[in-house]
Write a protein that binds this DNA or RNA. Structure first.
Lengths: 192, 192
DNA sequence: AGGCTTGGCTAATGACATTAGCTTTTGAGC
DNA sequence: GCTCAAAAGCTAATGTCATTAGCCAAGCCT
């Protein structure tokens, strides 16, 4: 190997710091290269292109979120676990808002894998509810949708009245928990 | 007035068609100009810049979503209204996936107004539950978070097992409704 | 007719991503 | 220690955008 300088991981490190400090829109190869003390095209030796860098960064972030959540869920179960999961998710988002909004929307396989890991944690947290397999998957999706939806809106919409957002989130947690405890509904046909 | 050709509205029309046909990433001033049969800089006579075009487009889309939802909620109340609202939201997203993903995240005031109109519809749908004012606001936020979160994940993640997404969504609707009917929880402190 | 306003155009600039092709470093094996 | 091939860097070039400046034509009002 030559010049023990950069590596794909190191590039992602730099990108992560950049996003933290200047927001996800500042994520350009030029900016990353500059921070890394390297010319822009040199990055291509470590990363296929900008899209791949975004994907790698998303994986890094999702894994970090994963870690925090699984730590928080450890040793808890049922309602307690769900509460911990959702609260930790939101805390992560609020602590690193730029990271969360840097998450890649485009469906790269690597990113999907990190997403699956997240789903597995949710399934583990749901185990205490004695759901059938498919019911557990539905529940996990709901958890994800709920946490993600609130996160996105809170980050880049701001809502208004910021002092009450905790209460809104508590209500949402309450909806999830009571919904899980109440017998599943018959599937309803489309409205209209 | 000269040359009765374009207008801000017409530009948004073109942009909307472009997004529908080629996806939200294809939304560039160059592409819009080309479709409008005009040179790129000419667009600046109608629109301040790309950011404003995005904002105008978002308003257009949010208003359309608003219309569909308020139509669906008309004449229904309580659980029925909530179900109609959420179902219509998802139907809109699935019918026009590109439009929904073209929605602007950056907080322009005009876009926020359109968002408020949406919140008002939700508050109307919630009226039957006899919530206090602030409780209704929390509930509306939850509705929005839930619908948006599921929409975003469904659009650009795809989940897997597409045949069961209806059931997942039904579960989420169930969570919302039972959560609204069950007494509000005491606010819980942060976990950990 | 004359002139202002409006909407359109061409040209120029600057930020990016990306590719091509050259050079240097360095580690592995001799 | 020497050689050399791969790795990692660089400069130069291209193409796509957004955006600005400055020019021109067309229509409307008087």
């Amino acid at each position: 190997m030559a010049r023990a300088a950069l590596s794909a991981d190191a590039v992602v490190d730099v990108a992560l710091r950049l996003v933290d400090e200047e927001g996800s829109t500042a994520l350009t190869l030029a900016a990353v290269a500059s921070r890394a003390g390297v010319a822009t095209p040199s990055l291509y030796k470590h990363v296929r292109n900008l899209a791949e860098l975004r994907a790698l960064l998303s994986v890094r972030i999702l894994d970090e979120l994963n870690d925090e959540i699984s730590g928080a869920v450890q040793g808890r179960s049922a309602d307690d676990a769900i509460r911990a999961l959702l609260t930790t998710w939101r805390n992560y988002v609020l602590t690193h808002p730029h990271r969360y909004s840097a998450l890649d929307q485009s469906p790269q396989p690597q990113v999907e894998q990190a997403g699956e890991r997240l789903v597995n944690i949710m399934l583990a947290a749901l185990r205490a509810y004695d759901l059938e397999d498919s019911a557990a998957i539905h529940a996990a999706r709901c958890l994800r949708a709920v946490a993600h939806g609130f996160a996105v809106l809170e980050i880049d919409q701001g809502f208004q009245l910021p002092e009450k957002l905790n209460e809104s989130y508590d209500l949402m947690i309450h909806m999830v928990i009571t919904g899980l405890r109440t017998p599943a509904p018959k599937t309803v046909g489309p409205v209209e």
